[in-house]
Design a binder for these strands. Structure first.
Lengths: 125, 125
DNA sequence: CTTGACCCTGACACCGGCGTCAACGCTTAC
DNA sequence: GTAAGCGTTGACGCCGGTGTCAGGGTCAAG
């Protein structure tokens, strides 16, 4: 299939697919007229990438997953390198949540100090 | 005082101070040679901006606080416009935390599916 | 007079994952 | 022949808050 069909079936835009290729995440054969040609396995690869992106992974994070799939594994996450990324990501998310909670309480404290009562009363200070 | 001293005393770089001015958050008199001149009130203004930036506010968010201080209030957060920003920011943070928690559980679920046991055992899958 | 420490403006770089446009080639249908 | 609808590459734009450099001016001390 060509890039348009892969785009439709994977949920990525053609632009995104070319971007993934540019960064070495997917590869395409070329037909005689220079058009990129893809197969079913690529649909799977791109779907994996999209699903990782959707939960906050970067393209670099997705790389081991793609290579895991390419090397024949059924799941992109079943290789040691992918698991490393999974765990690092969980740690990152946890750190970010802690940071947000800290910021939240700082903001709430500032609000409480600047305008006592404003935290619970909706309306004018 | 000139920009270097204000920078030292407020914790912002000269570059940042010019940027704040460019976006209308602070103003500077100019001495005869064209140098920016600041006073004590500006130290306070910039300190307010820095403290807001530090907890994740944007410069636009900081604007009402600055104007609140300029209009004579002791605290930048005691004006209605500032309180609106405070509450919006709290809501934003809460939304972001919820989103992160959702992503966290999705990632954990993906990991658990790709590599059962990996969530609790450190090491090879 | 010169050095060095300030100051000025203007402009590019960054980061990530694309969107979007330009300018062009291929293919199919009418 | 030609128009539509695909494809190609290359390049700029975005978002925010600076860092950093270029190419100047100002001023006090030596």
């Amino acid at each position: 299939m060509r890039i348009g069909e892969l785009a439709q079936r994977s949920g990525a835009s053609p632009r995104a697919l070319r971007y993934y290729e540019q960064h070495g995440l997917i590869r395409a054969r070329r037909s005689t007229n220079g058009y990129r040609e893809y197969d079913e396995a690529d649909v799977r690869l791109v779907a994996e990438i999209r699903s990782l992106i959707a939960v906050g992974f970067t393209l670099e994070d997705a790389r081991p997953f793609v290579e895991c799939l390419r090397s024949g594994h059924e799941s992109g996450g079943s290789c040691p390198e992918s698991v490393v990324v999974y765990r690092r990501k969980l740690a990152d998310i946890d750190a970010e949540i802690r940071s947000l909670l800290a910021r939240r309480s700082e903001v709430a404290a500032q609000l409480a100090q600047a305008c006592p009562g404003c935290l619970f009363t909706r309306g004018e200070p």
